[in-house]
Amino acid sequence: MENLEQQAFSLIVHSGDGRSYAFEAIRASKEKDFEKAEELLKLSSKEFEQAHHVQTELLTMEADGNSSILSLLLIHAQDHLMTGITVKQLAEELIEIRREINMDKEKNKNIQ
C-alpha cells in the first residue's frame, strides 16, 4: 500500500487533471464543439474516479482503525478533490446552458 504522502499527491494529481479537463470542456463548448466538451467531461470523470478510489482507501484505513496523521498535505489534497468536483459539476451545467442557447439560436436562424 502506498504511504500517506504518496496517496495525498495522487489525490492532488487526479483532482487537478479532472479540474483541468472540466475547464477545457467549458472552452470547447464556448467554441460550440459540444462533442469535444462531452469527451473532455468523460476524461474529467475518469480522473475523479481515480481520486475517489484513493480517498476511499484512506477512509477504509481509518475505519479499520489505522488512523492516519492529519497533515496539511492531506488537507490540501482533500481541498483539491472537493473544489475540482465542484468545478466539474458547474462545467456540466454551463455546457448544458450553452448547448440550449446554441440550439435556440439555430432554431431562430432557421425560422427567419
Rank of each mutant, 00 (worst) to 15 (best):
E62N: 10
L43F: 11
E47I: 04
S68E: 08
F48D: 08
H53F: 13
S71H: 08
L41H: 01
E47A: 13
K46H: 13
K42S: 08
T56N: 08
S71K: 03
S45F: 08
L41E: 00
G65A: 03
I69P: 03
K46S: 13
E62T: 06
L72A: 10
T56D: 05
S45E: 15
N66S: 10
G65M: 05
S44F: 09
M61Q: 14
Q55I: 03
L58K: 05
K46N: 13
S71P: 05
H52T: 14
K46Y: 12
I69Y: 03
T60F: 01
M61K: 15
F48H: 06
L40V: 02
L70N: 06
S71V: 07
K46C: 02
I69N: 09
Q50K: 15
A63T: 04
S68M: 07
E49M: 11
S68W: 07
T56G: 09
L73W: 02
V54R: 07
Q50W: 01
A51I: 04
S71T: 15
S67P: 00
H53T: 14
E62I: 01
L72P: 10
L58G: 02
Q55A: 13
Q50T: 11
M61P: 00
L58V: 04
S71G: 02
T60K: 14
Q50Y: 06
L59D: 13
L41N: 01
V54N: 08
S68D: 01
L43A: 06
L59Q: 12
L59A: 09
Q55E: 14
E57Y: 05
E47K: 15
M61H: 12
K42M: 02
T56M: 10
L73H: 09
T60A: 12
H52C: 05
N66E: 12
S68A: 09
S68Q: 13
D64W: 00
F48S: 05
L73Q: 09
S71M: 04
A51R: 02
E62P: 12
L41T: 02
S68K: 09
L58H: 07
V54S: 08
L40P: 00
S45V: 04
S67W: 02
S45L: 13
I69R: 10
L59V: 10
L58C: 04
L40T: 01
I69E: 14
